[in-house]
Computed example of a mutant assay.
Amino acid sequence: MKKKKNLLVLALLLWTISGYAAKVDTLLVKSPAMNKNVEVVVVVPDAGLGKKATACPVIYLLHGYGGNAKTWIQLKRNLPQIADEKGIIFVCPDGKNSWYWDSPKDPAYRYETFISSELVNYIDGHYKTVADRKGRAITGLSMGGHGAMWNALRHKDTFGGAGSTSVEWIFARSR
């Protein structure tokens, strides 16, 4: 009886997981400006996969201070489901504690250049995207919200939309 119950639970779990076809990639993207690889999590909807993939809009999600590339996928566990439902690619780079701007003193912190140029070019070159500012938005959590607004204002030719989110809103919505 216990084996049957365990098999049933396993079957339900597998069925639930297979309900979302979105693919979650964890990549290391080379940044020539910083001369290092940067970890990036990319969530690609089913519509953006395979030979018959359709071009998808992209939302760049920037984490807050103390976060990393996996912060958004941990906070919003249903990101693959949202990607599938809306046909959106989500890109979550590790911005360290950089505030997403280029440091005038430390060449290892050129995150504005990485986010708004190098990463966008990489994503457009490796995924089926709407490769135009009309198909790109950027938003972030706390420090990432600062970075999103900073990059959107300074790179209007790259991002067609921007937003900023507070930590309190995310935690209130996840309860």
Rank of each mutant, 00 (worst) to 15 (best):
L61V: 03
G19F: 15
R77C: 14
V40M: 14
S18V: 04
V41P: 03
K70S: 10
P80R: 01
Y109C: 11
T26P: 10
I59C: 14
G95N: 07
K23G: 10
L61N: 02
P32T: 00
A108G: 03
W72H: 06
C92S: 12
D94M: 13
K70Y: 05
E85C: 11
L61P: 09
Y60G: 07
Y65P: 13
L14N: 07
T16S: 15
L49H: 01
C56M: 09
W101C: 14
A47Y: 02
W72V: 04
G66V: 01
V29K: 02
G19S: 15
Y100L: 14
P32K: 00
T16Y: 14
H63S: 10
Q74A: 13
T54P: 14
R77I: 13
V41K: 00
G64F: 09
A108P: 02
Y109Q: 13
P104S: 05
A21C: 15
K96R: 14
W72T: 01
K23S: 13
T16I: 14
P80A: 05
K86Q: 15
Y100S: 07
A22Y: 03
D106V: 00
K36V: 07
V44M: 05
C56D: 03
A47L: 15
K76I: 14
E39Q: 09
I73R: 02
F90V: 03
M34W: 00
G50W: 08
W99I: 13
R77H: 15
P32A: 00
G64N: 08
E85P: 10
N35D: 14
I59R: 01
V38N: 12
L12R: 08
V40R: 05
S103K: 00
F90W: 02
L13Q: 10
L27G: 09
Q74I: 08
T16R: 15
G67L: 09
L61G: 06
R77P: 15
A69P: 10
E85T: 06
G48L: 08
R77L: 12
I89A: 12
K105M: 09
A69R: 02
M34E: 04
G66H: 02
S31A: 10
A21R: 05
N37A: 11
Y100H: 07
A53T: 03
G48V: 03
E39G: 04
A21Y: 06
Y100D: 08
G48P: 13
V29D: 06
G64P: 11
L27D: 06
G50R: 05
N68I: 05
V91A: 10
I59G: 02
H63C: 15
V38E: 12
W101S: 13
K23D: 11
S103W: 00
D106W: 00
L27E: 09
D102F: 06
N37G: 14
A33Q: 01
Y60R: 02
D106K: 00
A47T: 06
L28P: 07
A47Q: 10
L14V: 08
D84R: 01
K105Y: 07
S98L: 11
L75F: 11
L62P: 02
L28H: 07
V38W: 12
A83Y: 04
